[in-house]
Design a protein around this nucleic acid. Structure first.
Lengths: 107, 107
DNA sequence: CTAATATAAAACCTATAGGTGTTATTTAGA
DNA sequence: TCTAAATAACACCTATAGGTTTTATATTAG
């Protein structure tokens, strides 16, 4: 199989503020676990757990490089979020359009 | 004050699949607690708890109508999600642009 | 080959998310 | 005005998310 089954969905993965911070850090630069951890007050083990959740959601990928493990951002799972959001944007757009119609035809 | 402080953020609110289902139901039709509950296997009390979380996040609004309480969707908090997502879309767009440049200038 | 560095793995703790059932309270309608 | 319907308010249970510390395994640099 090309890709392991996704155990954590993107909604759950980005629910935690620390994990969102990790994603932001990785958007600035690919980093090792040690580098990432240095930005947080929590233990390195805790950071690794968050990285595991993000990995299971497919939002990041870790590659061993010598004794380091470098983490990279992955965009693909955010597409699901984008689609989900698009549905409600469309919903809202329709509602506003109807409202506009009512206002214009009201006296 | 016009609006209570937001106790639950939108990321947390949409993390639960049941709550996402509730939002979807409300996008089809404004509904009472009883109506919403009828679509789920969990107890009405549990549904109410989810509605409370969604309310605290500002994603829904409940209005008493006689002995019923009708729930409505609210779009506004989704803007934060949209902005968050836009950042990573931009990030990805830039990355692809750079990649394209490299490919085109490579031999 | 050994010391130091970086990560992995395991066992454990605690707060809380998501669920339950039971008991008020409010309101509509015969 | 009494009963049934709809919601609100409690008290309670259990799994797990998010954190800790400790111990083991790889890997690089002298």
């Amino acid at each position: 199989m090309s890709q392991a089954v996704q155990k954590v969905d993107v909604f759950q993965a980005i629910a935690d503020p620390t994990r969102r911070d990790v994603l932001h850090l990785l958007s600035e630069r690919n980093q090792s676990i040690a580098e990432i951890s240095s930005h947080f007050d929590i233990s390195r083990t805790a950071v690794v757990k968050h990285l595991n959740v993000l990995t299971e959601a497919g939002l990041v990928r870790g590659e061993k490089n010598g004794r380091e493990k470098i983490y990279y951002l992955q965009f693909e799972p955010l597409k699901e979020l984008k689609d989900w959001l698009a549905y409600y944007e469309q919903f809202w757009h329709n509602k506003l359009t109807k409202l506009k119609f009512v206002v214009e035809n009201d006296q």
